[in-house]
């Protein structure tokens, strides 16, 4: 299994296509960092425009607010919406790409069980997802920390503001990245499942993106009848739960409780739902693949 995994990883990381995603992430992160470095104040003004009636914001405040932690949050907010495409590029290609190249039939004449092959393929996609996240963490989190420094983190929510002490932030990012890994693995598993049905990778990649986009729109729409009927079951509703780690508890006087998470059970529940999705997608993919006649 390990030997096969090594082969898969070798194949993935030998392909130029693989590095498109890393390049894209680096580019997006860098562009956001540059923009906020040189024009962060206007961005902050925009965010705070709602509050300027009640509060005074001097330059010192804005400088502190625009710290590495906030920048990373802004980047994650943007990037975790685009990442599924990058994930789908590899996972959607996992089986369909081999079918398209004609190497799938060759691989399947080797003494490897189909289940084993699928598990290896999926694990390789998972490792690729992790690698993307690690690169993102390095660039978006540590890069921003280096460029912008650190300070207390302010998270602007639709109906409130969360303020977290400097020392209380970093572990939340680790948790959030861990969560994001699961969330993106869900997308990866979906692309992987679709990949089993296709004979070229364009189909699964586009199908995955379409599903993610449609589901995200449904998740973000404020339509009351969907709130309880559809939304709780869409995996996209749960993909943003990494933010739950940045929602803190406060005491009766509105003081942040350090080290707390506002609604950990909800975050864990979301995590559980995503894991169920992963198993369903992966299980179905293996089941279908085991029965499939390889005709390509």
């Amino acid at each position: 299994m390990w030997k096969l995994l090594k082969i898969e990883l070798f194949k993935i990381f030998k392909r130029p296509r693989t590095y498109i995603a890393f390049g894209a992430i680096a580019a997006i992160v860098f562009l956001i960092q540059i923009a906020l470095k040189y024009d962060g104040k206007s961005y902050i003004d925009l965010l705070l425009s709602n509050l300027s009636g009640s509060f005074e914001f001097n330059d010192d405040f804005k400088d502190k607010l625009l710290n590495g932690y906030l920048i990373c949050f802004v980047i994650l907010n943007t990037l975790l919406i685009q990442m599924p495409l990058l994930i789908a590029l590899i996972s959607g290609d996992a089986i369909a790409g081999e079918a398209n190249m004609g190497t799938l039939r060759l691989a399947m004449t080797k003494p490897i069980s189909r289940t084993e092959y699928m598990l290896v393929k999926f694990t390789a996609s998972f490792i690729y997802t992790l690698a993307l996240l690690v690169v993102m963490a390095l660039l978006a989190l540590f890069g921003s920390m280096l460029i912008f420094g650190t300070n207390d983190m302010v998270v602007l929510r639709s109906e409130g503001i969360e303020q977290i002490k400097n020392f209380d932030v970093l572990w939340r990012y680790f948790a959030a990245f861990g969560y994001a890994a699961v969330a993106l693995t869900t997308v990866s598993a979906l692309a992987f499942l679709l990949s089993v049905f296709a004979e070229n990778s364009i189909g699964p990649i586009i199908a995955t993106m379409s599903i993610v986009i449609v589901f995200t729109i449904l998740s973000e729409m404020n339509i009351p009848i969907y709130d309880e009927t559809i939304k709780p079951y869409l995996f996209t509703s749960h993909m943003v739960a990494w933010k739950g780690f940045f929602y803190v508890k406060a005491n009766a006087e509105g003081t942040t409780i350090n080290g707390s998470i506002e609604n950990l059970p909800a975050v864990l529940r979301s995590l559980g739902i995503l894991i169920v999705y992963i198993f369903v997608f992966l299980g179905t993919a293996i089941w279908v693949f085991r029965k499939k006649d390889i005709l390509t």
Binding site: L47, N50, L51, G53, S54, N77, I81, L156, R157, S158, E159, G160, I161, E220, N222, K231, P232, S237, V240, A241, W242, K243, G244, Y247, E262, N263, A266, V267, R269, S270
Partner: peptide, 23 residues
Amino acid sequence: QFNTKDYKLPKGITFDYDDGSKK
């Protein structure tokens, strides 16, 4: 003590995580 004005940001900007708890 001071008066505060309404605070609300559109969800399209914040992409909040809705944990399903009742408001």
